[in-house]
Nucleic acid binder design. Structure first.
Length: 316
DNA sequence: AAAATTCACAACCGCCGGCCC
DNA sequence: TGGGCCGGCGGTTGTGAATTT
């Protein structure tokens, strides 16, 4: 059995909140803090359901809310985060202090979406509308898996470290080119950019549960990257989550980008065969900053990555 | 000036996962 | 273990203000 009787469907008020209701709720939270929302209406003397109280507090009454129009900076950030995260408004809101997911969602639906369309950008794919249309046209006839020549796939992810707010961007690019009959060479490029208190990824450790067309296996074989995050980060992609742990490293730069390329010979009939391993291109330390980043972990989405990688094989 | 339309934003609804009993 | 509650989330709707016809 459950704990408490669910909000009994007695006559509860709906619709806009009156100033009196706001005052009651604000005073209650100010005095007792946030506890069990379902008991707030009764304790605060409100004829509302707990959910409604919670929403009113989060979206309107909270003292740390930033009011007013979105700045250009916020606008740009929302756009770029939406490109990465899609309609995950709560995760986007987590990157904009003082803004709520509801506010951002409304702003997106009422303004940003239109603005992007006016600029000729598809607000869903964030690619030029023509390109998107052409891609859709091309993909329509063949939903069957095909290893198309020059197939290309890109995805991006942003990981936010909760404590510092430092952002960490990953970008993947996958391309295929024909070799011989029934054979293709696939290049899998990754670039990682991390901000202050740099963060590094190790696919070798992270992708230890490979089940995605051998891609993860290839990364395991080829990678010797380190996974070093000083603290837990929020999950930003996908539904499936798994943790990974750092092995400890000292970082020297506040901003650093790293690139890697994996080449794989593909035979659609035989599956994937590993050909070459990784190649590390560059990093650019700016100022010196050492930090011991051991014993840290963060989440990535195995499922999302797998899903995205699988996407490559469906392109034509 | 009034009606119609558009816009911005507040609030609701339904679903889901986690937790408790 | 299963039922039910709770909180969080994203999609949708409602509402008042602003703008257009």
């Amino acid at each position: 059995m459950g704990r408490h009787p669910h909000c009994t469907k007695q006559k509860l008020r709906k619709g806009l909140w009156s100033p009196e209701e706001d005052e009651k709720l604000y005073n209650h939270i100010a005095r007792f803090g946030i506890g069990c929302w379902s008991s707030v209406p009764r304790q605060a003397g409100l004829e509302r359901c707990g959910k409604s109280c919670r929403l009113r507090w989060i979206n309107y009454l909270r003292p740390d809310l930033k009011r007013g129009n979105f700045t250009q900076q916020e606008e740009d950030l929302i756009t770029s985060l939406h490109e990465v995260l899609g309609n995950r408004w709560s995760q986007i809101a987590a990157q904009l202090p003082g803004r709520t997911d509801n506010e951002i969602k409304n702003f997106w639906n009422s303004s940003l979406k239109k603005m992007l369309k006016q600029r000729g950008i598809d607000p869903i794919t964030h690619k030029p509308l023509r390109e998107t249309g052409a891609q859709e046209e091309r993909q329509k006839p063949s939903m069957k898996p095909i290893f198309g020549p020059f197939a290309s796939f890109e995805c991006q992810a942003v990981i936010d470290r909760v404590e510092t707010g430092a952002n960490f961007y990953r970008q993947f690019r996958q391309t295929c080119r024909p070799l011989e009959q029934n054979e293709f060479m696939m290049n899998f490029d990754c670039s990682f950019t991390s901000g202050p208190n740099s963060v590094y990824c190790d696919y070798g450790e992270a992708l230890d549960n490979s089940d995605s067309c051998g891609i993860q296996e290839s990364l395991n074989n080829g990678s010797n990257w380190n996974c070093n995050i000083p603290a837990q980060t929020s999950t930003v992609l996908g539904n499936e989550v798994f943790n990974w742990y750092s092995s400890g490293i000292k970082l020297e730069s506040p901003i650093r980008t790293e690139f890697k390329t994996y080449e794989r010979r593909l035979n659609p009939c035989q599956g994937l065969q590993h050909v070459d391993s990784s190649e590390e291109f560059s990093s650019y330390p700016t100022t010196s900053r050492s930090q011991d980043l051991s014993d840290a972990w963060f989440d990535v989405s195995q499922g999302e990555l797998a899903c995205e990688l699988n996407g490559n094989f469906l392109s034509s």
